[in-house]
Nucleic acid binder design. Sequence first.
DNA 1: CTAATAAATTGATTTAAATCAATTTTAAGG
DNA 2: CCTTAAAATTGATTTAAATCAATTTATTAG
Lengths: 235, 235
Amino acid sequence: MTENIEFSVDDYHFKSHSVFENLPVEDKDFLKAAIIPKKYKKGDMLFLEGSYPAGIFYLIEGKVKKFKVDNDGREHIIYICNKGELLGYPALLSEETFSDSAAAIENSTVGFIPKKAFITLLEKSPVLSRKLLKNLSHEFAVLENNILSMAHKTVRERLALTLLILRDKFKTEGENNDPIEINLSREDLANILGTAVETLVRFLREFKDEKIIQTKGRTIFILNAKRLVEIANIH
Amino acid sequence: MTENIEFSVDDYHFKSHSVFENLPVEDKDFLKAAIIPKKYKKGDMLFLEGSYPAGIFYLIEGKVKKFKVDNDGREHIIYICNKGELLGYPALLSEETFSDSAAAIENSTVGFIPKKAFITLLEKSPVLSRKLLKNLSHEFAVLENNILSMAHKTVRERLALTLLILRDKFKTEGENNDPIEINLSREDLANILGTAVETLVRFLREFKDEKIIQTKGRTIFILNAKRLVEIANIH
DNA sequence: CTAATAAATTGATTTAAATCAATTTTAAGG
DNA sequence: CCTTAAAATTGATTTAAATCAATTTATTAG
């Protein structure tokens, strides 16, 4: 059963699905005409850090990780995108190369909106422009929270917080009362936390021993979200 | 003498001075009429995380730190703003509370642009809108770089990188050949790195012993920026 | 279904950085 | 200029997490 807890993921969620929602009908129609859907298999890359965008991506179905790779080849996952979210638009708007890479972590359907169409729409739609400003500003706050997490929280605290965030991302449509299944490789989870897989596993074991979570294979079930809120030590 | 080195601070600089530069004359005039200058003494707060913005800030002269305070009361400095930069506009655009606090670290002159004036201008100026989108997108990439730094770099690496960034921020107008003076409390510097003051001091000592830097009181002079680029281990 | 391969887990050890404790230096005010 | 409080520095110790090494458990291709 999913619990009701005193925690909102808003401070850790990009919420870019709100950008395309509530657009004027003409803008929505324009987008519908321009969007090109494509399927990606688990593991497939959407775009690669350092290259220039040819358009932006709209995640129709599935999940995508946004990550950076450091000089020593280690991956760090900045964000997990869920259905309805936009990807790659900051690079297009800043006229810079992609600042991160994106890869599907589930089989996904992604809509591609070519640069020209997107810019055309942006130029004629003040609503879209305003929504993007609002969303980018929100994402700024989210990344700041991330920096604070990485700078000052212990791995145990970050794991608790991350499990709460993932709980939200992996919850299913129907809002049924089955426990939420978090299905992510240990490596990906460690790369979200910015820690070693072994360290991650040790804390998962601790949480299991304390009956906060339960696992079946790689899948994680959250049993005591309230306790995770306490451990995460967030205001 | 300041050296020429293979390192650009662009990936770590918000560059918001570009937002108000090159605006159409009418927009600039509108801003000039709306802006209210105010002096802040070293240590004075500009705004506080959690409160709603009444307007945005334009740093005319001086330096301001943007920081967050975690649950245990520890401060983390996200960014040092320099002359010409904008502050507080993401909160206004996202219609959320300030995601960070801001305080002067030098005696500063700050122009305040009331919310109403800023929103009015934004609504009538597509150029401003586009520039803000561009800048916010760039800042997104900067914060991602920050996250990667905090997640995977050692304190020694982060110190080297931070000194290079500060070298740029503290360089004086005239481009004279005097060595650049970085004047910041050890506590502030430690709070940029996300480390303890004692740890910071130990690495400063190491850099001094290797003749990479020199100090006089709290002031740091960079002697070998090329070596710092190597130590920072950036691509 | 089963082998082969990859992923996950556990244990032992090392390392980076925090913390605690004290001393020295610096800056600010009278 | 001197006093004093704050800031910076150094040293000793502890702690969190990484790394190295091995084993067990899943997953997937055939």
